[in-house]
Every structure is written in structure tokens, then in C-alpha cells.
Design a protein around this nucleic acid. Structure first.
Length: 468
DNA sequence: TACGTGTACAGCAACGTGCC
DNA sequence: GGCACGTTGCTGTACACGTA
């Protein structure tokens, strides 16, 4: 983010950010990664390498049998027994043995070096007080809460990085705290998932024992990538649990005397089959039901009205209930004439088509578009408040409403841009289409005049459409 | 172009073991 | 019990590669 006095929190791309004054992406002088390659640990400046050898790991761990270079260091402090004739053995690039020696040989220096090293949990604050960051074991309960927070808040574990400010945010409250590594988060999440699944299964079994089958509802949906190369399927179960039973299961009084609405997600899978046909969907649902012992549990699943959903339910002997929201959106599309063959509202459909074409003319004509923007500026709008006409979105059922509203808001400016006249009446450009019957009737009723010629009638149509 | 994912490894602390 | 030494675990970082 780029902060400047005029645009607080203005977000930009990395490329544009690097083009800002003072930024040179090729300048590596302050790049820690570049320094790290050439700079050895500071503690080695206080030792001299005497000789090298080979170390073979013993024990039974993962390193057992492997070999690594062993380095023999002499302490540079005068009179130290760990001199050239009795050097310290240090395996690999580590510095552990050097620190252990320095702790007793030069304890103040050892403390300073530890505090300076970014790998050490030991720090020294501005007042010279030494403190140590929490160990992994001390932090584990906080890590668990952190993972739960990320999960509940739909945050990504990629946030557990030092370079995004989160560590500073955490240490602002407790300087000894730290965020868990990504791998730790994933391991904790796996354990939580396992425990949660056990509880869900326990509730499913109890509900089945209480009511028999069927005993639950379900909702499922599918999402496909635009490339159609992958599909994700999600299913959640709807349980209305007896609170007394649930309290007994979970050893708590929290739910006693209540009905508990519980809707766990029981499947969220990448749908591996390249063809998400009804048959493939039916097989996937059977697998989910087998995993959770849900055979016969759901008689009426709720889904959208896709044909593959309908077929899957038919194959599995279920009665599909189409989601109310989807049915409502279909109803609006039918009522507005957009869906259904034949159209149930051809007049509105024709109007919608012409109004959309009119709005689209502004994106096709830079002259019209410039005139519209000028009209809005003259009306007192700021440059960042300028609106463009909307074309009806054919997929969203709110498309008709959004198009009409937007074009009504900027109707005066559109009239000015198209006709040069505030009232939108232009005798120069007649509407090129025949009058829809309803509009014609409405106009004739309104005017009540006789003998109106065709040119005048077309002008009135232009006005009518613009007003709409 | 930016981001996601997997792998390797450096650097350190902690723990275990054996010796004195 | 203190010390020296070996082994293991954890975090942070770099980097390669794939992909939206």
C-alpha cells in the first residue's frame, strides 16, 4: 500500500510501487538475503578454524548414518583452554557448541551475540533488560487459538509470515509472543478436523437413534472454474437436535431445554471427474453418505435446479427441493419475459432489449460517451463521480432493476448527450422502430390529439424511451 | 505479474547421555 | 551435580516451479 496525503491506504501493484521515487528494485544493498550468503555468523569472529573432519551421525533418528563436515575451532580469548591444541568440535554450519563455550568463557559477549542474532529467542530491550521469546511449547495453546481464529475468520495461513506485519502486531501486545509456522497451522488444523468429525459423527448417530430415517435435511452446491477444468462440490447437513440429548453427549448443561439448529459441512471436495453428470454426482453423494453412515438420512435435499442435480437425486431415490432463492430468481426472469419459451412478457422483453441497446451505444461511441461525461460535469459532479449507463446483466435477476435505476439516475445527462436538449426532444433523429402496442396506446391516450404526423410520433417515442 | 506450493537447509535451543 | 558432546525439533528463509 502506498500512503500519501491525498490517497490514504491507496493500493497499487508492485510494479508501479517500484517505480515510485526512491525505489530501485535492482538495488540489493539493503537486501538481507543477499547479505546472508556472504556473511557468516557473528560468533565465528571470536573463534579460529583449526582443522576439519567428517562426522557420522549415530543414534536412531533421521540423521542416523549420515555424514557431515566437522569443524574444529579454537577460542581466541587469551589463556582459554579451548586453544589450538584442544579445539571445539562443531558439526556443519551450526554454532551451538560455540555458544555453549562462550557462555562460560565470555558470558557478556555471548549474551550480546545472542541478542543480536535474529535466530535466537533472546532479546534485549531499550532499557537493557534481557528477555526470551516464548518456546514452542509455551506458545502451543496460543497457536491453537490462532488457528481457530484463522479458520473462523476465513483467513489464510499464508498470513503466518514475518514479512507482512502480523508478527509485529502480535508482539505489540506481548513481546515474547510469535506466530506459528504455516506447517504447524496445518498440523493443528488436521487434528481439529479429526476431533470435529468425531463430534459430528456422534451427533449423527444420536439423531438417527432418536428419529430413525429420514432424520436430516441437506444442501449441496457445485462450483466450476471458468476453464471448466475443475469443479468443487460442497454438502452440508441440517440437523435439529434435541438439546437434552446434545447436552448429555457433550457433558454440558448448555443446551438443555432447547432445540439446537446444527448444520455441519460434511463434504467439501474437488470433484475429480471431468464430467459432472448426474450419474457422477449421484456416485459422489453415495460415497459421502457411506463415510458418515447417512444412508436414508436425507429424503428431500435442497439444491439449485440444475439438470444434473435433478438426475442425481432421481438416481439416488431422493425428492429434490429447489432452493427458494433460485426459484425466486427464476420467477423474476419469467415475469420479466427474459426466460421461458414462448416469452411470458414480450412487451417488457422488447423494451429491455431496446433500452439495453441504447445504454450500450455510449460504450460504442466515444463521442456520445464524452458528451455524457461533459453533461455530468456541467451538472456539478466531480470527475470520480461520473457514471456510465448500465446494460442489463442477463444472468443476474437484479439486472433489469439495476439497468433501469442507473439509467434513470443519469437520465437528464443522457438526454442532453443524445439530443442536445434538456427535455430530450429531438426532431432531427427519429426512432427507427415501430411502436409497441402498449406504448402507442399510452401515448395516444395521453395526447388525445388527432392528426399527429409520424415524425412527431417518433419524437415522442424517443422522449418516452429516454424518460424510461 | 503476483501468488501458491513444495523442498531444502541454515541457525538456533532443548534434550538426552555419559563421564568425572 | 556439572560439564561436554551428540541428536533432535522448530522457525525462518531462499528458491524453483506452476498457475490464476
Amino acid at each position: 500500500a502506498v500512503d500519501d496525503p491525498d490517497y490514504k491506504g491507496f493500493w497499487t501493484t508492485l510494479t508501479l510501487f517500484n517505480e515510485l521515487p526512491g525505489r530501485d528494485p535492482d538495488d540489493k544493498t539493503d537486501d538481507k538475503s543477499a547479505d546472508k550468503k556472504s556473511e557468516e555468523p557473528a560468533i565465528k569472529k571470536h573463534f579460529v578454524l583449526v582443522s576439519t573432519g567428517t562426522h557420522t551421525y549415530g543414534g536412531s533418528g533421521r540423521l542416523s548414518g549420515k555424514t557431515q563436515t566437522a569443524y574444529f575451532f579454537a577460542c581466541t580469548k587469551a589463556g582459554c583452554p579451548k586453544n589450538h591444541t584442544n579445539p571445539l568440535k562443531q558439526i556443519g554450519s551450526g554454532t551451538g557448541q560455540l555458544f555453549v563455550h562462550l557462555d562460560s568463557c565470555q558470558p557478556i559477549l555471548a549474551k550480546q551475540l545472542r541478542a543480536a542474532s535474529k535466530h535466537s529467542p533472546v532479546n534485549i530491550d531499550a532499557d537493557g533488560n534481557e528477555y526470551s521469546l516464548f518456546s514452542f511449547q509455551e506458545l502451543l495453546p496460543h497457536h491453537i487459538r490462532y488457528v481457530e481464529k484463522c479458520f473462523r475468520g476465513f483467513d489464510h495461513f499464508a498470513e503466518t509470515r514475518q514479512d507482512n506485519g502480523l508478527l509485529d502486531w502480535v508482539r505489540g501486545f506481548e513481546r515474547r509472543a510469535g506466530v506459528p509456522a504455516r506447517e504447524t497451522c496445518l498440523q493443528l488444523l488436521e487434528i481439529m478436523e479429526e476431533w470435529l468429525d468425531e463430534r459430528i459423527q456422534m451427533m449423527i448417530d444420536a439423531q438417527k437413534g432418536w428419529l430413525g430415517v429420514p432424520f436430516a435435511g441437506s444442501q449441496s452446491d457445485l462450483w466450476s472454474l471458468k476453464s471448466a477444468r475443475a469443479t468443487f462440490g460442497c454438502t452440508r447437513l441440517s440437523l435439529i437436535l434435541d438439546g437434552d440429548m446434545l447436552s448429555a453427549l457433550l457433558s454440558t448443561d448448555e443446551y438443555k431445554g432447547r432445540l439446537v439448529d446444527c448444520s455441519p459441512i460434511i463434504a467439501f471436495d474437488k470433484f475429480e471427474s471431468s464430467r459432472h453428470t448426474g450419474a457422477n454426482l449421484a456416485r459422489w453423494k453415495v460415497q459421502v453418505n457411506e463415510k458418515w453412515k447417512l444412508q436414508g438420512a436425507v429424503k428431500v435435499p435442497t439444491e439449485d435446479g440444475a439438470s444434473n442435480n435433478k438426475l442425481a437425486c432421481k438416481i439416488n431415490g431422493q425428492e429434490l427441493h429447489v432452493c427458494l432463492d433460485h426459484n425466486l430468481s427464476r420467477a423474476v426472469l419469467y415475469a420479466s419475459g427474459e426466460a421461458g419459451k414462448p416469452s411470458q412478457n414480450p412487451e417488457l422483453k422488447a423494451f429491455t432489449k431496446r433500452s439495453a441497446a441504447q445504454a450500450a451505444s455510449f460504450s460504442r461511441s466515444v463521442v456520445n460517451n464524452a458528451a455524457l461525461q461533459d453533461a455530468q460535469l456541467e451538472a456539478g459532479k466531480h470527475t470520480n463521480e461520473l457514471l456510465a449507463p448500465k446494460v442489463k446483466n442477463t444472468t443476474h435477476w437484479t439486472g433489469l432493476s439495476e439497468m433501469c435505476n442507473r439509467n434513470r439516475w443519469i437520465g437528464p445527462e443522457m438526454r442532453l448527450a443524445l439530443t442536445g436538449e434538456a427535455d430530450g426532444i429531438s426532431l432531427e433523429r427519429a426512432a427507427p422502430f415501430a411502436l409497441p402496442a402498449q406504448i402507442s396506446d399510452a401515448l395516444s391516450d395521453e395526447s388525445g390529439s388527432e392528426g399527429e404526423d409520424q415524425e412527431e410520433a417518433n419524437s415522442r417515442v424517443t422522449l418516452f424511451v429516454l424518460m424510461s
